[in-house]
Amino acid sequence: MPRFWLYLLGLCVLAALSASGATARDMSDAQLLRYHNLTAQLRCLICQNRSIAESDAPLAADLRALVATQIKAGRSDREIKQYLVDRYGAWVLYDPPFNYATWLLWLGPFVLLLIALAIALNMLRKRRPRSPHGRPLDRARLAAVLDENPDERTRQAARDRDAQ
């Protein structure tokens, strides 16, 4: 099996017969922008993790041509993606749509962020500074001063220790 895929990979680079350069011609600027965005979001099926925009494989060139034709025919991005999903499966989409299969993917990081922030907030509240006029503030000022001047800090720390 690996040899087969290696072979295909070889094909990716070798037998680029179709005219990749010709596909994007005679498109308007807006269409061209859509073309570039769309081809960057579609996976080249036989390459090792490349988009069809980036691949020299013949199939990728065919798919680029297909995307160009469909854009020129006035199809929407959504329609073009659906067209390819119908044939190749959700695998072709680098930008998986939000649905029952991907809600965890899309929401997971943000749920984690909310949990983490909630824990941190809880921690901060528990450790509310005791008094703005008491020692903590003095120490904060001290730290600010000491941060700039390590030597002074050493001396201060020595004094600190004597005091204790």
């Binding site: 979001q41 988009s51 499966g89 959700a90 072709v92 680098y94 930008d95 998986p96 299969a101």
Partner: peptide
């Protein structure tokens, strides 16, 4: 790792790429 997870949960093969 989501492609592996989705495959394992029987949600089908999918790709997660730069746009995500």
């Amino acid at each position: 790792l989501y492609p592996i997870l989705a495959d394992g949960l029987g949600l089908g093969r999918l790709s997660v790429g730069p746009p995500y």
